[in-house]
Write a protein that binds this DNA or RNA. Structure first.
Length: 301
DNA sequence: CCTCTATGGCGAA
DNA sequence: TCGCCCTAGAGGC
């Protein structure tokens, strides 16, 4: 689940359940033992997310930095009669009398200073889930996108360009904007990017509220189309993500997949037509292209 | 039992 | 570009 919406949802939950009171901090696997001991019994002040980074704030400007990576989980159990013994590989446990949170499989779990936290955040692009004025400025992303010849599908996943978007939101955002994933960033119009950003803000806020990714418009829901709901352990209703070979909900063409920089990319060849550049004709006469679109790779071409 | 996959990202080569 | 980190569920034999 770990795209930005999930981390923001977690920050909210952790704050609701633990913030403002002392917590027990432990590391059943021992891997975070020394750090846990330093924080044990202290007040968890708040939890905050920035993109896919999660920060648990403790007195003295100390922060537990958590990055779930691909397979990490932070399970929060509130309102329990008793806190059970840890099951499996629990690297970090936060608990009080009636609640506990267990971290497993995370890429990162470190005790950081304020300076370390700020250095991390400084490397990240704007996060659509932050408040505007506090890290959610779409023009910061536009500066990079408009200067890059890399595919927009690559740029959306680059946390230095934009923080919080993962493989699902990437695929779905591009579909909703009928955009070729391989279209170079520099060929986008500013208005197109701002529309995509606005859409992302809405989609991801919905994602935080429901803790799942739903991207289909009302007219394409299972109810509206009279089709069975999606059966997938990853949750929500989507247009193209992991729908390889299935008919597009809008045009009926088979959804395609290809690998792009080590990640699976999904798109509809009918709705997201290949971008062919703008054929500009300079005054001199000889026709040239402003961009050379990358060759479409993958199955079916 | 085994292998494969996954909403991520790092560092070595 | 590849291997690797780490966990859990699904599916094949």
């Amino acid at each position: 689940m770990p795209e930005g919406h999930h981390l923001h949802h977690l920050a909210r939950t952790i704050t609701d359940v633990f913030a403002g009171s002392p917590v027990r901090v432990s590391s059943p696997t021992g891997r975070f033992e020394a750090e846990a001991r330093q924080l044990d019994g202290q007040v968890l002040e708040a939890a905050e997310a920035w993109g896919k980074q999660l920060f648990l704030e403790f007195p003295g400007e100390r922060y537990i930095h958590v990055h779930l990576g691909l397979i990490g989980k932070l399970d929060v159990h509130a309102g329990v009669a008793a806190v059970p013994a840890p099951v499996g590989q629990v690297r970090l446990r936060i608990q009080h009398e009636s609640a506990y949170a267990d971290l497993r499989g995370a890429t990162g779990c470190d005790l950081w200073t304020r300076a370390q936290r700020e250095a991390c955040v400084a490397k990240l692009g704007p996060d659509p889930l932050r408040d505007s004025g506090d890290g959610a400025d779409p023009l910061r992303a536009w500066e990079r996108i408009s200067r890059s010849t890399k595919p927009i599908g690559t740029l959306l996943m680059d946390q230095k360009v934009l923080a919080g978007v993962g493989n699902v939101y990437r695929a779905e955002l591009l579909f909703r904007h009928r955009m070729d994933p391989l279209r170079p960033g520099s060929t986008l119009k500013r208005s197109q990017w701002l529309a995509m950003w606005a859409d992302l803000v809405e989609l991801m806020r919905d994602g935080v509220a429901k803790n799942r990714i739903d991207t289909v418009r009302p007219e394409h829901t299972p109810e509206a189309m009279g089709r069975p709901p999606r059966v997938d352990d990853h949750g929500g209703e989507v247009y193209v993500y992991r729908r390889t070979g299935m008919p597009c909900l809008v045009c009926g063409q088979a959804v395609r997949t290809a690998e792009l920089e080590g990640r699976n990319l999904f798109w509809c060849p009918g709705c997201q037509r290949r971008y062919r550049g703008r054929a500009t004709t300079p005054r001199g006469g000889s026709a040239s292209r402003t961009v050379t679109p990358p060759t479409r790779r993958g199955p079916g071409t």
